[in-house]
Design a protein around this nucleic acid. Structure first.
Length: 262
DNA sequence: ATGGTCGTACAACGA
């Protein structure tokens, strides 16, 4: 069995219903993981997605902020939703497909502007969130699992437009990358995207503030697809749909895809 | 060094 999965920070699922439908129609992933839905679950426009064949959904939501959802053509059952760092935020949902594969969908806290937990509570919350992810995966030893989402960290030099300029910018600081790598090691997670596309700059996010995001190309790879060691060899055909950043009323993130033969 | 743009929801706040 083969299935294609995509992850996309949509920055309001209700405002961007048209481009979610565009993606589902044109790219037709079997599973689409969304972050920053900014909507209570009951107000997610499920009927529009169901009409395109995405009749299954697991989700967590809250009014105005955060929110994660997994839309699927394949049956999926919810197998958990954690509140790491006890923030009371809708930042995680886990679902399981009928082939036994578990999908974790995460929206990790952005962490504010100042990379110092003494001066910026949000930065501390981000690090604490990652530490609790690490401990949770260490304790649960995930198998046959995929982890996707907006992790709000670009770990590699080639994941940002200028490594040296971004070393003190939240999302690319050494302490964040260390926490990121600790989560990976604790769960036996492997970076599917970089296994497929090992060379060169690769981004999934471009700020709204740039005059011309495409020409300036000051991007970061904040959105990730990971797999546990037992299924990492099944992954292939990773790509970032950069075009979607230029669609009508775009999200500031582009979708990241991977296919699994299992 | 600063300011630049979005979404939510109607004033800031978060990103």
């Amino acid at each position: 069995m083969s299935f294609t999965l995509a992850t996309w920070n949509i920055n309001s699922v209700r405002l961007r219903e048209p481009i979610v439908c565009k993606l589902l129609q044109e790219e037709a992933p079997d599973v689409l993981c969304l972050q920053e839905c900014k909507s209570p679950v009951e107000l997610i426009p499920m009927e529009a997605f169901a009409a395109l064949g995405y009749t299954h959904m697991v989700a967590r939501g809250q009014k105005g902020y955060n929110g994660v959802a997994i839309l699927s053509k394949l049956p999926i059952k919810e197998v958990g939703a954690e509140d790491f760092a006890s923030l009371g935020h809708a930042r995680h949902i886990a679902g399981q497909l009928e082939n036994g594969v578990t999908i974790h969908n995460f929206y990790v806290p952005a962490g504010g502007d100042v990379p110092d937990r003494e001066k910026n509570e949000k930065f501390g919350q981000k690090l604490d969130y990652l530490t609790e992810m690490r401990d949770w995966f260490k304790a649960s030893s995930p198998k046959k699992s995929i982890l996707v989402g907006d992790l709000n960290i670009a770990p590699l030099e080639e994941d940002v437009w200028d490594h040296k300029k971004l070393l003190k910018i939240v999302s690319h600081t050494p302490i964040e990358v260390e926490h990121f790598n600790d989560v990976m090691a604790a769960g036996d997670w492997h970076d599917v995207t970089r296994a497929d596309i090992s060379e060169g700059k690769l981004y999934s996010w471009w700020s709204y503030r740039a005059k011309d995001w495409d020409a300036a190309d000051k991007g970061r790879r904040l959105d990730h697809v990971w797999a546990t060691g037992d299924i990492k060899a099944a992954a292939h055909s990773s790509r970032v749909l950069r075009d979607a950043r230029g669609w009508e009323k775009p999200s500031d993130h582009a979708p990241v895809f991977a296919t699994f033969d299992l």
